[in-house]
Computed example of a mutant assay.
Amino acid sequence: MSLALVHIAKGVVIWTLVPSNIAGRTKKSVTSTVLFVAYCAGNSIGAQVFRAQDAPLYIPAIVVCSTMYGLEIVIMICWRAYYMWENKRRDKAVEAMGLTKQEAEHQGRLNAEMDMTDYENIHFRYSM
């Protein structure tokens, strides 16, 4: 039961955070496609670790699944730390430009209309 809740919770986080933290139409489309293909491949491969000879406890499969969930948690923590660091770096850069928060947000919207990616747009902020 608890593994199912973890699986549902991480799915919601991944499927909502990725699109909201990517700018640029093409980059967002490509990233969403790659994410979907990787998700499908992972689910297909993951089912293969449940072998009949390991029944009824499936200890090797439980170890693999637990390890992957642990790795996913570490990656999510690192991802969040990177976004926090990048937002602070961008805040300092915009502050050095002498722009107010409202001017920076306005410029960010203008840059988004020019289809700038999140790397190109210094005014883009990652959500967490």
Results as ranks from 00 to 15, higher is better:
L71G: 02
F50N: 04
C40L: 11
A23R: 01
T67V: 13
Y39D: 07
Y69C: 09
S66V: 12
A38P: 05
A61Q: 03
A47R: 15
D54R: 06
S29R: 13
K27Y: 09
I22Q: 03
Y39P: 07
F50T: 04
K28L: 15
Y69D: 04
V30P: 14
V30N: 12
A55Q: 04
Y58A: 05
N21V: 03
L57I: 10
F36W: 00
S29D: 13
I59D: 06
Y69L: 05
A55I: 01
T16W: 04
A38W: 06
Y39W: 12
K28T: 14
R25W: 06
A23Y: 02
D54T: 05
D54W: 09
K28W: 10
M68G: 00
N43Q: 14
T67R: 07
R25T: 03
P60F: 00
K27N: 11
R25G: 06
A41S: 11
G24Q: 15
V37S: 15
A52P: 03
D54F: 07
W15A: 05
V34C: 04
I22M: 10
N43A: 13
V18L: 15
T33N: 02
T31M: 15
P56T: 12
K28G: 07
V30H: 15
F50M: 07
G42H: 02
T67W: 08
L71W: 02
A47E: 09
M68D: 00
N21K: 03
L17K: 09
G42R: 04
L17P: 01
A47F: 11
R25Y: 06
V63D: 11
K27C: 08
W15H: 01
Q48T: 05
G46F: 09
T33H: 00
T67D: 03
A52G: 01
A55Y: 08
A38N: 08
W15C: 04
D54K: 04
I59E: 12
A61G: 08
I62E: 13
Y39K: 05
P60H: 01
A41C: 13
I22P: 02
A55T: 02
R51V: 00
G24K: 09
L35R: 11
A47C: 14
P60Y: 04
G24E: 07
D54I: 01
L57R: 15
V49E: 06
L35A: 13
F36Q: 09
A61M: 07
Q48H: 11
L57S: 15
F50L: 05
T16M: 04
S29F: 10
Y39I: 06
T33R: 08
S20P: 02
L17F: 08
D54L: 06
T67L: 14
K27T: 10
P60E: 00
Q53A: 06
Y58K: 03
A23S: 11
L57Q: 09
P56Y: 09
V18D: 15
S29W: 05
N43R: 13
C40S: 02
V64A: 10
